[in-house]
Simulated assay, not measured.
Amino acid sequence: MPPLSPSLPPSPPTRDSVVAALRAAGCVFAEDEAELILATARTPEELAGLVDRRVAGLPLELVVGWAEFRGLRITVEPGVFVPRRRTEFLVEQALAQVPDASVVVDLCCGSGALGAALASALGPVELHAADLDPAAVRCARRNVDGHVHQGDLFAALPDHLRGRIDILAANVPYVPTGEVAFLPAEARDHEPRTALDGGADGLDILRRVAAGAPDWLASGGCVLIETSGRQAAAALAAFAASGLASRLAVAEDQYATVVVGVRE
């Protein structure tokens, strides 16, 4: 979203001038965004800088430094995947499946939003989060009151978690490689490709998580992964191939599709 006009006039910015600058740059929810930016800025100079960055196309969450997720303020940083509100549905499904979970893992954690939200809802839990990306690990350590590990999927986790995990939440990348270029610019240009690109059909990482999950889940434990509606059948098949009792959960109003697998 390139700037279409000077972001702010040289005089001290006002709410109206901020809204006008955002609207001119194509921000659909200019009024709402202006309120967040105004609440974040501590000085007129900082306000002008925040507006300039938003007008230049930086995602709003990276401009203000946080994203709301299930009522929590999750710190986000440049180069880290921004949690989507639709993914709150995955958290709801996890809590419904294992409401008394005591060991929770957020795999491919990004900012750590899933783990933080699950721990907030469950109360005291043993919480682990993991990501391959060092930037994500640094960011997650600011949001997660638990253990944050760096590494490739299950290889990042301490071995003592085998057979103990009650909830394994994994917001894996699931955009097919050939479709990454068609994503909105805010994702395509400002989030790491490794957090978006799921391989030829978008399910490479999902299959790896599904294959490894049974060794790590406790009896009755569940693994939950967000996917798309058109990938749902193949995702369910991957879960079934791993011996998991699987089901599909869909929230059409949130455009959310989650595959849930349970170790029986």
Rank of each mutant, 00 (worst) to 15 (best):
A56Q: 09
R23D: 11
A30W: 05
V91I: 09
G71V: 10
A235V: 06
E45D: 11
A235F: 00
V103I: 10
I37V: 15
D201M: 13
R73N: 07
E68I: 10
E126F: 13
P6T: 07
A21G: 11
L183D: 13
P78M: 15
R230T: 15
A116E: 13
L107C: 15
P176R: 09
A249M: 05
Q97F: 06
P134K: 03
P134F: 06
F182D: 15
E88A: 04
L60Y: 04
F29I: 12
R164G: 07
E179F: 10
L4H: 12
R85D: 13
Q150V: 14
E92M: 02
G151T: 14
G57F: 06
D52A: 15
P134Y: 03
A249E: 08
D215L: 14
L58N: 06
L90Q: 01
E33S: 10
P99F: 01
S219V: 15
L36Y: 09
A213Y: 08
A121L: 05
V172M: 09
A25W: 02
G151W: 09
L153H: 07
A241I: 08
P10D: 15
L47A: 04
S5V: 12
Y174D: 07
S120V: 05
V28Q: 13
I165Y: 00
G65H: 06
V19Q: 01
R85I: 09
V63R: 01
E31M: 04
A169Q: 03
G198L: 11
A48V: 08
Q231H: 08
V76F: 00
A129W: 05
F239D: 01
F182W: 11
V175H: 07
A187V: 12
R54V: 02
A233K: 08
A170I: 05
